[in-house]
Amino acid sequence: MKEKIILRVISKFLIPYILLFGLYVQWHGDFGPGGGFQAGVIFASGFILYGLIFGVSNVRTAVPSAATRILLPLGVLGYGLVGVMGIFKGGNFLDYNVLAAAPTGGQHLGIILIELGVGVTVATAMITIFSTFASRAELQKPRDEER
């Protein structure tokens, strides 16, 4: 789809706003609809649009597979770590009340960190799944031509 000029221009125009909107949904999830799951998906869909229009190899330059491979478990580990932090601070697993001086402050901090973990994992998982499928398609093309 690289040669379609309308798609190229419009998607170049849209992608930054999609990513920005993803970040907004991530950090504004406490007050309006939103949160880590939605933000991760929206953020990933920006990259997926980029991959659809400009080819998956360009996505791989923007987000190298090493980066997704590190970030994917890092989100889950970050989530778990926040839970363990609660134990170290003298509470239960995933008890955010003890994370800061005031219970609600602790809850705010805990929820923001956890949503971040969720968002990172979901976004990298979606990008990983998409680029795996897409690079498989690119691998298969020459093989089909051989047949």
Binding site: G35, F37, Q38, G40, V41, V122, A125, M126, I129
Partner: peptide, 9 residues
Amino acid sequence: LTAIVVGVA
């Protein structure tokens, strides 16, 4: 909400 994301995965 969580089930949808897990569903797509």
